[in-house]
Nucleic acid binder design. Structure first.
Lengths: 244, 244
DNA sequence: TATTACGCTATATCACGTACACAGTTATGG
DNA sequence: CCATAACTGTGTACGTGATATAGCGTAATA
């Protein structure tokens, strides 16, 4: 508290800790506007369409003007990754376990709507105010358990990781543009059937032959999500029982 | 089997399903050499140092020669992401649960050694021969359980996802170059303490104050990993019990 | 009011991915 | 045995994008 520990520039900016300067022309922009514009572009065109030029155009300034607000494109990406995070779901009167489920699903869902976040996120630990709010809210729910502080953090981490991994998976399955039936789980299964030599991949080709990847009783995005989520929640619940 | 289902080019190449042509000069390169060179560069300099030019230089040809073997840099990345995967651990006489633990840790560990994989991987479902081998091996271990085929796949997916998420987290914590004590969990805790307003983040600032992020009894990379892994394995074990 | 820090623009550079056209090479069919 | 077609590797050229630098105007401070 005393020393104003030197923060990385990005982090400082993300939390609005910029030194307040009064001199020269009044800024025509502010960080939030820039970040919002960048997010909008990424939402529409993906990260591929995101360039310093396109962002600048969107807010109506010359490209180089942005550099008065962000140190580099990478910094901008980091700020986008926090800025695009919605507020966490309300607790309401949900039991801790139910809230964890809701929370994790919401976490996954906003990633599904913003695929580009997956390509950015990985790079930094959660340091932005919005991400932190999510963390805060799970911890609050976990306060109703008997886990110790370390365990709570780790449980939260595991859930966050799961949301991330599941979103990756779902998105990875999707695209392929259905060009030739390579998209989706069924398409995936078909590709596997084509490629796998049963001698080299006995267990996997067995699974493929069993038809797991096909239609109804097999794979749906959601059943997949719930399955893993329940594994984790069951694990947490068991731990809680042990601790009580 | 009949129709030679049209595979995406990358996938075909990854599995050596290129049409065999005999005409013109004998190729001086082969895909494997190129991919290996690219991996070596990524290992040493990271993805930043990886350019078509640098890869070409490494194998001793002109840049454009590479395009006889790969359709684009992105394709190359996809092949690297499979090519860099080591063989999965041997089962030995491990019980299924123990093997799952070993497998997941090995999975995470090779990601730690190859951070660049995390920035590539996400983009595609596991379609390469090496990744498939990993999948095959967990499934084989899970054959000793009472889970049905769908559950086995999903369990494997959850474990893979966990390895991925944990590796991301660990790597995200690491760098920061210890410039000012922002690296590592302790540094992270210090940053949080600096930034969080207790009113806005009550649970989280409570955790920070409790010292979870500091030193010994708090956070170590490994305890973190084991914690989440056990959640999942416990969950799988419980499910197995229910199914038996 | 003079000064000076600062916002924004325009221009310039440099690194990369990749299209294209050419030159040398080897199997194939007459 | 030769002409040709199907290839492989090379060099050059272009477009895009990130970012350094310098200049011009503006507004707070002395």
């Amino acid at each position: 508290m005393a020393e104003e520990l030197a923060l990385p520039t990005v982090v400082a900016r993300m939390w609005g800790r910029e030194p307040v300067t009064r001199r020269g022309p009044r800024p025509r922009l502010d960080l939030a506007r820039i970040v919002a514009a960048a997010i909008e572009i990424a939402d529409v065109e993906g990260l591929a369409g995101l360039s310093m030029g396109s962002v600048a155009a969107q807010v109506g300034v010359a490209t180089m003007a942005l550099y008065r607000y962000v140190g580099s494109k990478d910094e901008l990406l980091v700020m986008m990754a926090d800025g695009a995070v919605p507020p966490p779901p309300e607790r309401g009167d949900l039991a801790w376990r139910d809230y964890l489920a809701v929370w994790t699903r919401a976490n996954r869902d906003f990633l599904l709507g913003r695929p580009w976040m997956l390509s950015v996120d990985r790079l930094t630990p959660p340091m932005g105010p919005r991400r932190m709010l999510w963390l805060d809210r799970v911890l609050a729910a976990l306060a109703d358990t008997a886990l110790d502080e370390g365990e709570k953090i780790r449980a939260a981490t595991a859930l966050t990781g799961y949301a991330l991994a599941d979103a990756s998976l779902v998105l990875g399955m999707r695209p392929a543009d259905a060009e030739d039936g390579v998209g989706g789980a069924a398409g995936y299964g078909r590709v596997l059937a084509e490629l796998l030599e049963p001698e080299a991949y006995p267990a996997l080709s067995g699974a493929v032959r069993s038809g797991v990847f096909e239609g109804v009783e097999g794979w749906t995005e959601d059943s997949d999500f719930v399955f893993g989520l329940d594994l984790l929640l069951d694990g947490i619940e068991a731990l809680n029982a042990r601790r009580s």
